[in-house]
Design a protein around this nucleic acid. Structure first.
Length: 455
DNA sequence: AGCTGGTCCC
């Protein structure tokens, strides 16, 4: 073994040409035959490690063939499970799968150790997931028994690709195998469920109920996931119940949970309840952060209480919770919505003075606000300002301006915007075409101009 | 894990 290791170290500094028997393998055979003993499994382990570390994968088949056909020892399974993982890292998926199937031919009985190695390799790659099922069938034929850890790998992979139905089936299969899946598997599925868009909240709540009946100790994330889903599907008031359950469960809701629930309550227009919730939070000693204040500010603005809104922003500064772009955007958006574009513009000026850079959202809201007030020329100025600052306009915003310009009969300016869009690879929306084409007074020359842009 | 409105017609 010492002789082999010495040879292996020397070999690294030498280059050598292709031979029938690779250098390290013959070194192994020689080193042991000098002392008239047989190579040990750990000697093979050593050269396999050396070869993989040097990325000499082309030599591995010779070594494996030698173990299979010449030696008689029963190699430990770790040699193969390790090599399967290494093949995975090297992106040699077919080699990994083939080695797994071949394990019995090495006088070794494969177990979940190798199977899990292969499953991990396959589950890490989206394009390999389709191979998981055939591998499981193969494993069954080979007499490999799935372990709890095997199920864990598969369920995690299924959750990642949002195949919740299959994940639940695997969960049920675990019972058939005599395993009792723990709460982490359920949490994993629950969290994946909540991320699926268009999932029915009834289904999620049903699953959540199963978790409760199993008397799992639910964690903060479980509650947060479900609460956030309820808010997303517009059942903000239902999230209040879960907030209570959470407290009864001994979990102290944090600022994130309160912010989500507050958002849900405000979205439902229950402003009194929102006040109550905000107070409750303060009483519990939870310090609102900028995101909480932004949600709270949205509620105030929804009630058109702009003075209170400005005051809140001032208080934030006093309390050391610096407002951010979203805070100012919330004010700007609310002001534009009720036609107070002038005041919205003042907010823009103020935020710039405070050193904040407006973003795409700020421009979108102000431009739309100006257009709906009939101030198309101002809107165009702002649009230009936005382009100069390097913002990529949203097609929606362009549509709004084109609509506004057409309404005022400013067709050539509208066409200018259209050209600007085409230049930036932005596709005009339906309403932009509608505005342009509905101009019955459009002259032939301008119609041709559209033609040119289109072609 | 949470905050800003966001994209055709019906």
């Amino acid at each position: 073994m010492e002789a082999l290791k010495k040879t292996a170290t020397e070999q690294q500094t030498q280059t050598h040409h292709n031979q029938q028997t690779p250098f390290l393998l013959s070194a192994l055979i020689n080193s042991f035959s000098i002392y008239s003993c047989d190579p040990t499994p750990s000697a093979y382990s050593f050269i396999i490690k050396t070869l993989t570390q040097n990325s000499q994968f082309d030599q591995l088949p010779f070594v494996l063939d030698h173990i299979q056909n010449v030696e008689n020892f029963e190699p430990p399974e770790q040699i193969f499970s390790h090599l399967i993982r290494v093949y995975g890292y090297a992106n040699r998926i077919d080699d990994a799968v083939e080695l797994f199937s071949r394990i019995p031919s090495f006088r070794c009985t494969p177990s979940a150790l190798s199977l899990n190695a292969l499953l991990s390799v396959l589950c890490k790659r989206k394009e390999c997931l389709q191979m998981v099922y055939p591998v499981l069938l193969k494993a069954q034929v080979m007499g490999v028994r799935l372990e709890e850890s095997s199920f864990r790998i598969i369920i995690n992979a299924l959750c990642k690709i949002k195949k919740i139905g299959y994940a639940i089936q695997m969960l049920e299969m675990m019972f058939e195998y005599g395993f009792d899946p723990d709460s982490t598997l359920y949490s994993c599925i629950l969290s994946a469920m909540c991320k699926i868009k268009g999932i029915s909240s009834v289904e999620v709540l049903g699953f959540f109920e199963v978790m409760r009946q199993k008397r799992f100790s639910l964690n903060m994330l479980d509650y947060t996931n479900v609460i956030s889903l309820l808010v997303k599907v517009g059942k903000g008031m239902d999230s209040l119940g879960l907030l209570e359950d959470m407290k009864l469960d001994g979990i102290k809701p944090d600022v994130v949970v309160y912010t989500i629930v507050l958002d849900g309550v405000i979205a439902s227009g229950e402003f009194n309840k929102a006040e109550e919730l905000f107070d409750e939070m303060l009483v519990l000693g939870i310090v609102p952060d900028v995101q909480t204040y932004n949600v709270y500010l949205k509620g105030i603005c929804m009630q058109d209480k702009f003075e209170a809104g400005f005051k809140l922003v001032f208080c934030m500064e006093e309390l050391g919770c610096k407002p951010d772009v979203i805070t100012y955007n919330t004010l700007i958006g609310a002001l534009c919505k009720v036609g107070k574009v002038r005041r919205a513009n003042e907010v823009l000026r103020k935020m710039r003075l405070k050193g904040f850079q407006e973003n795409l959202h700020t421009y979108n809201m102000l431009i739309e606000g100006l257009v709906s007030e009939g101030e198309v020329v101002e809107a165009c100025k702002l649009f230009e300002d936005m382009l100069n600052k390097g913002f990529v306009p949203m097609s929606f915003t362009c549509d709004v301006i084109i609509g506004g310009l057409c309404k005022k009969g400013l067709i050539s300016q509208a066409l200018q915007i259209l050209k600007e869009m085409v230049k930036r690879d932005t596709t005009p929306g339906f309403s932009a075409w509608e505005s342009l084409l509905s101009m019955s007074k459009m002259s032939l020359k301008e119609a041709t101009s559209i033609d040119l842009v289109l072609s």
